[in-house]
């Protein structure tokens, strides 16, 4: 779907996410939006970026984003394929990976992530979500984390129903206390703008608006009283070459 501007809000989100990978050497990639954005970064500005999928493929170079984290094209184009115990124990756990790229069903004010259950009761959930997968340890051990998800009151909640992966826990100093060695979610990219943790409170704060989006739009889609950065900026609109590269990636193989 393309708006009046010649691109959709999802395209803006994916392009903003790809730009955020500029300078990263190695990226641990979740499936879906993160995988599309990581492959767009590789096509645009980071040809040498090492994409790591939890299936054990290191340095995968798929011509199109795969449907699953274990499609054959990932193994066939990888620098090497290692076992799943090895990918988590030798590559992720010691902190060798710069950026972890995650999606989320729910994220809260302190960037904690829920992909487990919606509702008050774990035993009798309103909605049973897929669960943790690799996310808790990706969020703990990558040097930093980028989260990509669509902005809505359902997704952006004051407190997540279940902490599957820790962002900033209950506030500043919590990650250190818990022994989580990475810096945590430094960037949350949505279809409306970009949120970053406040350096003093760790609370997610609106730092960028995508073109045509207002602060009120963003607040209306956030389930807490969203703070806005003093130097709120506008995201650069997608360039034609960025849109071309994304649309080429999205074409079926």
């Amino acid at each position: 779907m393309t708006g009046d501007r010649g691109y959709s809000s999802d395209e803006m989100m994916t392009i903003a996410a790809a730009r955020a990978l500029s300078g990263a050497r190695a990226c641990f990639v979740g499936i879906g939006l993160p995988s599309t954005a990581a492959n767009l970064a590789r096509a645009l500005h980071s040809p040498g970026i090492v994409l790591i999928y939890e299936s054990g493929t290191i340095g995968a170079k798929p011509p199109h984003p795969p449907l699953s984290i274990g499609d054959g094209v990932l193994a066939e184009t990888a620098d090497t394929v290692v076992s799943v115990p090895e990918i988590f124990n030798y590559w992720l756990q010691p902190g060798r990976i710069d950026v972890g790229f995650l999606g989320a069903a729910q994220i809260d004010r302190l960037a904690n992530i829920n992909t487990t259950v919606i509702g008050d009761s774990y035993a009798e959930p309103k909605v049973r979500l897929p669960g943790a997968g690799g996310a808790p340890e990706i969020a703990a051990s990558c040097r930093e984390v980028i989260v990509v998800l669509r902005h809505s009151r359902r997704a952006f909640v004051d407190r997540v129903d279940f902490v599957t992966s820790v962002g900033f826990g209950s506030g500043p100093g919590d990650r250190e206390r818990l022994g989580l060695r990475g810096a945590g979610p430094k960037t949350v990219i949505t279809d409306l703008g970009i949120l970053e943790p406040d350096p003093n409170t760790a609370e997610l704060t609106l730092t960028h608006l995508h073109p045509g989006v207002t602060v009120d739009d963003t607040r209306a889609a956030t389930g807490w009283d969203l703070a806005v950065a003093d130097d709120l900026r506008e995201t650069h609109a997608p360039e034609p070459r960025e849109l071309d590269a994304l649309r080429l990636l999205d074409q079926p193989a």
Binding site: E137, S141, D174, L178, L180
Partner: peptide
């Protein structure tokens, strides 16, 4: 392992 710390 280093894992699960701080999660529910």
């Amino acid at each position: 392992l280093r894992g699960y710390r701080g999660t529910d």
